[in-house]
Structures are given as structure tokens and as C-alpha cells.
Design a protein around this nucleic acid. Structure first.
Length: 479
DNA sequence: TGAAATGTTGGGGCG
DNA sequence: ACGCCCCAACATTTC
């Protein structure tokens, strides 16, 4: 049988990989696994060095896993269409299989590639794999895509119960002679023109499964059981930490759903709410993928176009303070420093800093969207855009524009002991709980006592929340 | 997946 | 004993 190419993109795993399994089946195991460093994406405005490093680590793991099965990953760099056509010709392969991606760039690229491959006489097949529900599998009764999460999620759960999920084994692969001769060596981050000091969690299929196993182990103290409450507490590891793995496909969403459903079968009633809440987050993931697919304009402007008329202040100094975690609001600064250090931010913190950027600093949510994409190991165009538009009040299902987080009360509510702030803002480490989220009200004596001079070691708040809240209401009120 | 402003109620201090 | 005020606690409305 002639070989088939499996084009890896954001499905960097052997287990439960739909297109890979199909390619193995249709070629009798003669699969040429390929990954292409897409120059367009590497030079794009959303590229993030920490995410690319996670990608490189995941590729390294994939290379090792393939080698164990006698197969070799072919690495290329350049324009995917040209590279695929070149590989097809040189290996006398019959076609290319891949798992669908749904961002506007990916759709345009893949549509053109499918056409070009067909024109050249090759097979080109794509598969549903990234999501639980395909873009048109869940629609309103009149066939329109859902724009509100809650009814979407209801249908998503029904769909899940009706169809269930199947998790596929690692397919049998056999070596394709000479495949490796066309591969470049695995580049380093520097080879790709990128560098970062961020230390993210490790990439690869094994770490992903380890995270899922502990998270869905009902005996663990912080597991999916306590997810519903613990996920909001900033200092706790109460979340799965699987986001980067779901972003690059080192674990399949079906594997995650299956683990949650298995937990559901073993769970006592109080645990059920935690599991349901986590499944709901996977529904949010599908929801935003289908929003971006059906409404690609959200990458340029507001989902609700009337909000494109908002006149942001876009003060560059305030933006720099936000980026650096030097706003003078401890929970905001802790969150931004967590992002800058770990390439990841707690989800509750993402909401807080997004509300602060848009409604306290009056800065365009797209500035924050880009900064997140450039620094998050899990940065995904659909989920990130959805989250930012939600926070800014410009999106689908958005909170009303007047719902403005108070950074002080959010800190007190979700970091009551101040442990999250202490971890990332060492200047405030000795400040007692009662001043942790309002250090600027400390007397000179207290500042000396707790080893921090406000305005010297740690900033005075760059804006006054009370004042900015009113200005935000006025700004939004105009449109 | 808010927070602030405003309204209501009831206990207690006090003249 | 009584009315008045203050204000915390809670509820409702508004942004």
C-alpha cells in the first residue's frame, strides 16, 4: 500500500488521534507523520515563546513515542502547502490526513491546501478531533449557531449523553523507508527566533495523562470533586492545569470527557457538582471554537458591533504597568507576575485583570488579548478572544457592561489569606491579611513594620477604582 | 462568573 | 416610658 501523510498540527499525540488512526487504517500502517513549522504563524502577532517551547517539548516527546513504534517524525519549516506537496511527491504518498482546526487562518489555509492536493491528484481528508461537537452539530431550532452559552451547553450535554465518546488506541505504525531523510532537525527556541524567561509546565503526552489521572482521582484532596469551589481560590491548585495540553492536543478532549464520566459513575452526590462544573468548562471550550468559526469578525472587533464605537483611552504607561504587574492593586499585580513567570494564569485571575484593563484602565481589550496570546502557554485564539470579549462586555453571552470587578473585594473574596499575592509579589510578603488587598491605607509606621514603603518598594495604585468605575460607566454609556 | 447606591428594619444609646 | 437618632444588617434597585 502507498503511504499516507498524517499532518500533525494541534494534536501532538498518538493516543486517541482520529486522523492518525484513519491514516494508519487506510495505509496499512504506512504513515508518514509530519509536523510543519508554519512561518506565517511563527511571525504572527499572536506567537508566544512559552507556547512554542511547550510545542517543542511536545514534539520531542512525540518523536520518542514514534521511534518506539519504529516510525519517524518528519519535521519541515516553511509554507505548509508547498511542504506537503514536496513530501507527497518525494515519497510517492497518496494523500494527507489531518484533524480539523477552526480559526479563520486555519480554515483558509486548510481549504486552499485541500483544493491544491485534489488538483494535484492526491487524497486530502480532514477529521473532527479537536472538539466534542462539530461546528454545525449544535444549532438552535432554526439552524443558527448559538450565541449564548447556557442553551448551547444544554444541547452539548444532551449530545454527549446521546452519542457518548469513543477513545481510540494508539494505531499500529510501520516504518516508511527513507522518510527521515527529508526531515530537518528539531529546532531550538532560538532557532525559531524566539526567547523567553518564562517557566511553563512541561509538554508531552505523558505529563498530560498524569495531570488528568490525579485530577480525576476522587481520593486526592484537591480533585475534580472539589473543583466547583476550589477553582475560584487563587492560591489553590484547584484546577486541572490541562489547558496547554488541550491547546496543543497532547491529550484528546474525549479522553478528558471519558475520565470525567468515569468519575461521575464512581462519585457520591456532592462530587457530582464538581464533575459537572468541569464538563461545563469543556463545553465553554467548544462554544468559543464555534463562535470564532461562525463569527470570525470577533478577531478584529466586538462581537456586538455597536461596541466598536467605544473610545478607549489606551494610555501606554498604564498598559506597561499592567503588563509588568505594577498597578498597585495586589491581586492584579500577582496575577500578571504569575503570567510573566509561569506563562499561565489562574482563570479567576484572568477575569480580574481583564476587567481591570478594560474598565479601570480604559484600555482596548485587544491589547490584553494580544498580551495574553504572547505570554500564555495555553493561549488559544478562540477561548482567549471569547474570554476577553466576555470581560469587556462586548461579546456573546457577555456580562453587562456595568458589571465591573472591584480589584480589592475580588482579592479579599478569592485570596482571603493573601497567599496568592505573597507568592508572586514578594514586596508584600510580610503584610498582614487585613492590609493585603489595600496596602496603600497602611500608616507610615505599619509600612515600616511590614517592610514595604508604598510608592517606593511597591506602587501607589495607578488609578482610583472608584473614579475609574464611574468613567467606565460613562464611556460605555455613550455607545 | 458584581458592586455601589439606596431602601428597610430593628436594636440600643440617650435625653 | 418614650421618641429620636445612629447604624449595622439585610434587601432591593441601579449602574
Amino acid at each position: 500500500m502507498t503511504p499516507l501523510i498524517h499532518w500533525f498540527r494541534r494534536d501532538l499525540r498518538l493516543r486517541d488521534n482520529t486522523a492518525l488512526a484513519a491514516a494508519a487504517r487506510d495505509s496499512g500502517g504506512a504513515v508518514i507523520p509530519v509536523f510543519i513549522f508554519d512561518e506565517t504563524l511563527l511571525r504572527g502577532r499572536f506567537v508566544g515563546a512559552a507556547r512554542v517551547r511547550f510545542l517543542l517539548e511536545s514534539l520531542e516527546a512525540l518523536i520518542a513515542a514514534l521511534r518506539e513504534r519504529g516510525s519517524t517524525l518528519v519535521l519541515c519549516r516553511g509554507n505548509p502547502q508547498q511542504e506537503l506537496l514536496r513530501l507527497l511527491a518525494e515519497h510517492h504518498a497518496s494523500g494527507v490526513y489531518w484533524n480539523r482546526d477552526y480559526s479563520p487562518y486555519a480554515v483558509a489555509r486548510d481549504t486552499a491546501i485541500k483544493q491544491a492536493l485534489h488538483n494535484a491528484g492526491y487524497r486530502a481528508r480532514s477529521f473532527k478531533d479537536l472538539v466534542v461537537c462539530e461546528m454545525d452539530e449544535i444549532t438552535t431550532n432554526d439552524g443558527q449557531p448559538y450565541k449564548v452559552y447556557t442553551p448551547y451547553a444544554r444541547r452539548w450535554h444532551q449530545h454527549l449523553i446521546a452519542t457518548g465518546v469513543q477513545v481510540a488506541d494508539v494505531p499500529d505504525l510501520r516504518p516508511v523507508v527513507g522518510a527521515e531523510t527529508l526531515s530537518i532537525a528539531l529546532p531550538t527556541l532560538v532557532d525559531l527566533g524566539l526567547t523567553t524567561t518564562q517557566q511553563a509546565l512541561p509538554g508531552g503526552e505523558q505529563p498530560a495523562h498524569e495531570l488528568l489521572r490525579t485530577f480525576t482521582d476522587l481520593q486526592q484532596p484537591l480533585s475534580i470533586v472539589s473543583y466547583k469551589e476550589a477553582r475560584n481560590l487563587l492560591a489553590l491548585p484547584g484546577t486541572s492545569r490541562l489547558s496547554a495540553h488541550l491547546r496543543l492536543g497532547t491529550i484528546s478532549v474525549r479522553t478528558c470527557v471519558q475520565a470525567a464520566q468515569n468519575a461521575l459513575h464512581r462519585a457520591t452526590p456532592p462530587a457530582v457538582v464538581g464533575i459537572e462544573a468541569w464538563l461545563g468548562e469543556l463545553a465553554w471550550r467548544d462554544f468559543y471554537v464555534q463562535i470564532l468559526y461562525h463569527f470570525p469578525h470577533v478577531l478584529r472587533g466586538a462581537f456586538k458591533p455597536q461596541y466598536d464605537a467605544l473610545v478607549w483611552e489606551n494610555d501606554a504607561d498604564l498598559f506597561a504597568a499592567w503588563c509588568a504587574g505594577r498597578t498597585g492593586y495586589p491581586v492584579v499585580d500577582a496575577a500578571m507576575r504569575q503570567l510573566n513567570h509561569e506563562a499561565w494564569m489562574h482563570n479567576r485571575a484572568r477575569m480580574i485583570v481583564a476587567s481591570f484593563l478594560t474598565k479601570d484602565l480604559l484600555i482596548d481589550w485587544r491589547w490584553g488579548e494580544r498580551y495574553f496570546m504572547q505570554h500564555l502557554v495555553d493561549g488559544d485564539p478562540a477561548a482567549n478572544n471569547g474570554g476577553w470579549q466576555w470581560a469587556a462586555g462586548t461579546g456573546t453571552d457577555a456580562q453587562p457592561f456595568f458589571r465591573i470587578f472591584n480589584p480589592t473585594s475580588q482579592g479579599q473574596k478569592f485570596d482571603p489569606q493573601g497567599d496568592y499575592v505573597r507568592r508572586y509579589v514578594p514586596e508584600l510578603a510580610a503584610v498582614p491579611d487585613k492590609y493585603m488587598h489595600t496596602p496603600w491605607i497602611m500608616s507610615e509606621a505599619d509600612q515600616r513594620r511590614y517592610g514595604v514603603r508604598i510608592g517606593h518598594d511597591y506602587p501607589v495604585p495607578v488609578v482610583d477604582h472608584k473614579v475609574q468605575r464611574k468613567r467606565a460607566l460613562e464611556l460605555y454609556g455613550r455607545v
